[in-house]
């Protein structure tokens, strides 16, 4: 554990900087005055009630959603309408979705090699070697030639993680990665995520897996009504919540 903690060191370098960010869906003000600085190596868990804007927040980081006000700087690049910069950021930021979003017409291996081959222009053989390395890391190398539809939910989510890792991203975003899984499969996905955290990856996870938050997060962020209500270290956050809204939320999710 001490060994793992050592590896989970946080550097002073800034990975993501969000300042004064606001977003609207039509008239609806989904994100309000978001200020967040993420250092390299940080593992941040974002939680909050549904509709609180937590998914929208991390989707803004790789421009799946556009923000209207404020500034987002990822890996030293500011997100603007410049498509080139958006592509550059997407290459460095991996993302896992609640519903995996694997490509059903491609095999597991092809899912993993697609982006390296077409975006990074890696030769096919090299891309396949890298893909197998990450499939082994998520413990499903034997499924490489199957199609996503033939795998269980947990296996699919692990493939999705491997697919993102094949681009060797500097930052990983997780959008409720275990919410669509059967209870028996949550653990296998969380194990992969813990392993990833211990290797020093910068991670932002929207999740309600509080065990995971306690184990690997160095910071927990609580959001409601499009705003960051409270953030603290996991121990402090869970054992000693400050705001009433956080207390209410925690009392509702811990049965």
């Amino acid at each position: 554990m001490a060994d793992a903690a050592k590896k989970m060191e946080i550097s002073d370098e800034i990975a993501i900087e969000i300042s004064g960010m606001n977003k609207w869906y039509g008239d609806f003000h989904v994100l309000r005055d978001i200020n967040l600085t993420v250092q390299r190596g940080e593992r941040i868990v974002i939680c909050g009630p549904s509709g609180s804007g937590k998914s929208t927040l991390i989707r803004c980081i790789n421009r799946l959603e556009e923000h209207q006000k404020g500034k987002i700087v990822v890996d030293g690049i500011e997100l603007t309408n410049d498509l080139k910069k958006i592509d550059e950021i997407r290459r460095e930021v991996g993302m896992c979705f609640q519903h995996f979003n694997l490509f059903p017409h491609l095999t597991v291996l092809e899912n993993c090699t697609l982006a390296p081959i077409w975006v990074r222009k890696t030769p096919k053989a090299d891309a396949e070697a890298v893909a197998m390395k990450y499939l082994e890391r998520v413990k499903i190398p034997e499924q490489a030639d199957k199609y996503p539809g033939q795998l269980s939910g947990g296996q699919q989510q692990r493939v999705a993680i491997a697919r993102s890792l094949c681009m060797e991203p500097k930052i990983m975003l997780f959008d409720e990665p275990t919410s669509a899984l059967d209870p028996e499969m949550i653990k296998e996905v969380l194990e992969v995520m813990v392993d990833l955290a211990e290797s020093g990856m910068t991670m932002l996870c929207v999740t309600h897996e509080m065990g995971f938050a306690r184990k690997v997060a160095n910071r927990v962020i609580f959001m409601d009504e499009g705003q960051i209500i409270e953030q603290n270290s996991p121990d402090q956050f869970f054992d000693n919540p400050k705001s009433d809204r956080t207390k209410l939320f925690l009392s509702q999710i811990i049965h």
């Binding site: 997407r90 519903h99 490509f103």
Partner: peptide, 29 residues
């Protein structure tokens, strides 16, 4: 599904790459 476009975008695929490799093959099938 919208997720297919998002999955491809998150990996950094361009519009034409997304169309030619991901969405059009599935749509035609």
């Amino acid at each position: 599904p919208k997720g297919q476009y998002e999955g491809a975008q998150a990996l950094g695929l361009s519009f034409w790459q997304t169309n030619n490799l991901i969405t059009m093959p599935q749509a035609l099938k």
